[in-house]
Amino acid sequence: MSTRNGAVATALAALALVGAQYAFAGNELFHTWQYALALAILAVSLLVYVAGALRGEDGRIGRFVAVAALGALIALAAGLSSGLLGPDTLSVARVPGTVAPLPELGAAAFFSTVDPQALANGNAVVAVRRLHHTDIVVGRGGPKFLGSILLFLDPRPAAYVEATGARGRLTITQPSGSSFLSPVLLFSERQSIAGEQHPVDAFALPGRGLTVKVVYFFPSQTQRLHARVAGVPALLYDVFETSTQRPLGIGLGTSGEPVDVAAVRLRATVGTYPALVIASAPHPIAFAMGCVLAMLGLSAALAFLVKDHAGVVEAVRHEEQHRDREHRVRPRHQESETP
């Protein structure tokens, strides 16, 4: 492979490696020293080529390739800057209808309210609000940028719980949850049951002095349970007395199915509710400009190469025609000179 081809391949590899930060946003790999080292090696290779090309070592085409390499260097700078200086990936999970302040972003995340149907459909959004700026609604139309920060949603299992006693509906509280007064469970804990990891959460019914632990079963995990719940997500309710921890009973139900335990009717709508993921990414303007410059340089180099090739072909054809003509003339000339 020639130096020039190597430079082109390096530039394309650099764009791909930096572009991967968008395709696999939030991946911790982009904050490792190995990734930074790979980008740095590519940058040094390109710089060496650019220096030589500007001295004219690779001819006129080399200068066009140098422009492409400069574009790749811009993308590399953006990629290195987000990888090394950008924040580690952060997931902010909140219950519907609450606000999470993001002081370092100068913003606040508003988690949309949901009714059981919206939770079942999994179409909740998160609005990121900053003073004197338009809201950034994350959830519709994929990830959104806030400077060089990428915002996107990570849907997680959730359940909207309703509890009813003999005198009607009961207050649901989550003393250890992210919101005290919420009927939405986000299952932020995991528990191993029979070798499988299950999301778990708990809520209290203070009006009845009860606590309910809820274990989430994914469709793949309900196959081994009762046929009634096989293949669909299900919840296991473990009800006990809050003050004494005395167990009062367990029940198993699917989404929307009422389950009666300890004189309380529990009903949960199962679905997803998103966490807001904040990840660093290369500055979109820098990356876009780098890509444009790289494509311009490569296109110009290619055009010059094609033109140059056409010129060489033309010159060869011209030379051949000239030689042909000479060949045809010379025998007659030689004949006339023949005694």
């Binding site: 700078a77 924040p87 302040p101 400077g147 060089s148 920060i149 500055h283 820098a286």
Partner: peptide, 22 residues
């Protein structure tokens, strides 16, 4: 272009800073 982009990327007030916790 390189100079402009470097200014955009490296300008201290140009982008949000590290989010710690919410």
């Amino acid at each position: 272009v390189v100079v402009i982009v470097l200014v955009i990327v490296l300008y201290p007030g140009g982008g949000p800073k590290r989010p710690d916790s919410a």
